[in-house]
Computed example of a mutant assay.
Amino acid sequence: MADARHFYLVALGSNMRFPGVGGPAQVLRAAIGRLSGPECKIAAVSGIIASRPIGPSIRRYANAAAVIETGLPPPALLDVLQEVEREFGRRRRGGRWRARPLDLDIVLWSGGVWVSADLTIPHPLFRERAFVIEPAAEIAPHWRDPVTALTLRQLAARIRKPRPAPRA
């Protein structure tokens, strides 16, 4: 049993209905409820936003972020998150970025950087994804990316900043 308490920023996404629960936004709310328990305390939850899918899926996503407090180390929390995904019908087969009832990703943690065969924290692509940064900055604006040293508020401002059109 771990003694140290850790805080994790977890991104949540759904673009499918789940029987008995409802549409994507209801799936996210139910997943938060499922995560809250003796092992994990939900410290903060963002509002739910809608986003366009990446890849072949045509269904819009519901996205949110949560700060979770737990004594679990990163691999153990990953196991918990993947079990919750399975409970909501997630099957890890087929192509990437397909429609899914629930996607839970560890984005950041209070321990800084974690790299293993199964898990990389910070999440390698989170800085490029407004659907992760916007909800995360809402609930943890002062958290810093340990790689860039920028806060989530700063990363959100960068992702919102208009970019010049490419030259022809």
Rank of each mutant, 00 (worst) to 15 (best):
P124Q: 04
A99W: 00
L28C: 02
P141F: 10
V45K: 03
T151W: 02
A43C: 02
E128N: 07
A76K: 08
Q154C: 00
V27I: 11
R98L: 15
R17D: 15
R91N: 05
I58C: 11
L108V: 13
V10F: 00
E87L: 11
V21E: 00
W143S: 05
R127N: 01
L28P: 04
A137N: 06
A64Q: 05
R96F: 14
P56V: 07
I32P: 00
W143I: 09
S36E: 14
G37Q: 08
R93T: 15
G111E: 09
P162W: 11
R92P: 10
I121S: 12
A50F: 13
L119Q: 02
D103T: 04
I139C: 00
L125P: 00
I159T: 09
L102S: 08
A76S: 12
R90S: 12
A157K: 03
P74I: 06
E69N: 10
Y61A: 07
N15G: 03
F126W: 04
E134K: 05
R90N: 09
V21P: 01
K161G: 02
D118S: 14
R92Q: 11
R160T: 11
K161M: 15
G33T: 07
R92E: 04
G95Q: 04
H6S: 13
W109L: 12
Q82G: 04
E39A: 14
G94C: 05
R96Q: 12
R59A: 15
P75K: 01
L155W: 01
L9N: 01
L78N: 02
P162N: 10
L102N: 09
A140Y: 05
A11C: 11
V67P: 01
P53C: 14
A31L: 10
R93W: 11
L28R: 03
R17H: 11
W109Q: 13
I32C: 03
L78T: 02
W143P: 09
I32V: 15
G95A: 15
G13Y: 00
A137P: 01
H123M: 10
A65E: 03
R60I: 11
E87F: 04
P124K: 00
L35Q: 04
P24T: 12
A30L: 05
R98W: 02
I106Y: 02
L104N: 05
V84R: 07
A156T: 08
P101E: 08
A65K: 02
P56R: 11
R167V: 14
R167A: 12
P122D: 13
T120K: 07
A168T: 13
H6G: 10
P166N: 03
L12Q: 04
L81W: 05
I58M: 09
G55E: 03
R5Q: 14
R167H: 08
T120R: 04
V67E: 06
N15W: 01
A168H: 07
W143L: 12
V27T: 13
P141Q: 10
A149N: 12
H142F: 10
D79T: 14
A44F: 06
G95Y: 02
I58P: 13
R167S: 15
A168S: 13
A25S: 14
Q154F: 03
S57F: 07
A66T: 12
G111R: 08
A66I: 07
C40I: 15
P73L: 09
L108R: 01
D145V: 05
L125I: 03
G23T: 08
G47W: 03
G111I: 10
E128A: 11
D145T: 05
W97R: 06
L150A: 07
C40F: 01
